[in-house]
Design a protein around this nucleic acid. Structure first.
Length: 386
RNA sequence: GGAGGGAUGGCCGAGCGGUCAAUGGCAGCAGACUGUAAAUCUGCCGACGAAAGUCUACGAAAGUUCGAAUCUUUCUCCCUCCA
């Protein structure tokens, strides 16, 4: 069923492992970070720049591309790889996260109980989720079959079963019912996937269950028992970092660890070390690219904060690069003072410049983590980065 | 020379007797952001103070009033139109 895909574990150190995830569009050395290009573009960055900065794989989003430009439109352009000019592997998320984000806002807002604007999610029932398009107001009904069909037309290599990303503020009963429904949706996703399988894509199942240990275990077992190519850990991971690590560990119980394991939506430096240590192979997160557009550059060993805010006045006369030991084009060419100025002057160059640094930073981090696992020196690597 | 309009906090700009230390916006200072409706959002932003509060403030001066950024008079400076 997944004959054009393969996941080989090359070496491991305790639970951490180094692997190769083979796809028809190339190999992914794991642990790897997947950059979010939600609307078929890593904001402000070209495919060439992604490659130059060691990017292996990117992620786009089914729901957003369904609204515009439409899956058929992308298929008619030769599929997403051809449309956007990216030859490497692509993962598409199913739209399940939009049930959360278009209903509740950002992860932080939901955890902190802030309500943000009018919900673009109208209804969720056994069949699927009903949205009001933020683009033209039209009704959009997303079902497991629709999500898989859309992802097939978009043509990513790695695709994800349709699920509901459960919020932090939902009680156990809701979380359990939602998880059961997600399981049924994922089964339907799998059936739809198998029905038209042409071996060009591989399907991820998603573990739900919120912050509840028994639910996470049940969900992990459900995913492992079904013929998904790989496993993703989704849903709320709690409200604190400590809880997040606990929840991820819960989800690892009962998992088939011969498959690739993806942790959805996590991208902090220390979070990645914790994830890798318990066996996570891939991560995706908007954080590195989003904070770049908000003026934040990732830096090593900066205490509880893993970035510096280049908009701060203290950088106005700082003639150093973001990081002295970084060889990205931004650090080689621009000072903190100049980046500070670009941000304050609203010059667009600031966005790609800082994004490039953050991308290179993440990719270098993942590379050193892979080396650390192979050399059994992961502790030393962590000491350098956190 | 005549007729009118205007001067508000770093800037623009509301307010037109009390609820005004004064709406907004910009600029400034911070913070947040984790399967992206995000080049977004939040807070602070006269002085002193941790705060309560105190002081100084709506071109200048004098007045009316219990009370004035708001009303009156004079002055200063800007702008428009007519000669």
């Amino acid at each position: 069923m997944y004959r054009n895909f393969k996941f080989n574990i090359i070496s491991s150190f305790e639970k951490a492992r180094v692997g190769v995830l083979k796809t028809p569009h190339g190999d992914i050395q794991t642990p790897a970070f997947i950059f979010c290009g939600t609307k078929a573009s890593v904001k402000g960055i070209s495919p060439k720049q992604l490659i130059e900065n060691e990017t292996q794989v990117i992620l786009s989003n089914t729901y957003h591309l369904l609204l515009y430009p439409g899956a058929d439109h992308i298929r008619e352009r030769g599929g997403l790889h051809s449309f956007i000019g990216w030859k490497g592997p692509i993962l598409t998320d199913s739209g399940g996260f939009q049930i959360f984000s278009l209903g509740h806002g950002s992860v932080a807002d939901e955890i902190k109980g802030r309500r943000s604007g009018i919900s673009a999610l109208l209804k969720i029932d056994e069949d699927g989720a009903l949205f009001r398009s933020y683009r033209d107001g039209a009704l959009q009904f997303l079902t497991p079959e629709k999500s898989i069909d859309t992802q097939r037309n978009i043509g990513a290599n790695l695709i994800v079963a349709f699920d509901e990303c459960t919020p932090y503020h939902s009680d156990k009963k809701y979380t359990e019912n939602s998880m059961e429904r997600s399981h049924r949706w994922e089964k339907r996703s799998l059936n739809e996937f198998i029905r038209k399988n042409d071996f060009s894509q591989a399907l991820y199942g998603v573990i739900q269950g919120g912050v509840y240990e028994d639910l996470r275990k049940r969900s992990a077992e459900f995913i492992s028992e079904n013929p998904f190519f790989a496993t993703a850990i989704g849903g709320t991971l709690g409200s604190t970092k400590t809880q997040m690590y606990e929840v991820v560990e819960m989800a690892m119980n009962g998992l088939d660890i011969s498959r690739p394991i993806h942790l959805l939506g996590i991208g902090g430096i220390s979070d990645i070390f914790r994830g890798v240590e318990i066996g996570i192979d891939t991560f995706d997160c908007v954080h590195p690219t989003r904070i770049a557009r908000h003026g934040a550059a990732l830096v090593k060993k900066n205490g509880t904060r893993e970035h510096i805010n280049l908009k701060n006045t203290m950088y106005a006369q700082d003639d150093n690069p973001i990081e002295n030991d970084c060889n990205c084009s931004t650090c080689k060419g621009f000072s903190r003072a100049y980046l500070h100025y670009l941000l304050k002057a609203n010059e667009l160059l600031a966005f790609p410049a800082i994004t490039i640094h953050n991308i290179k930073f993440m990719n270098k981090l993942m590379g050193e983590i892979r080396e650390g696992i192979q050399n059994k020196t992961l502790d030393i690597v962590r000491e350098k980065w956190c």
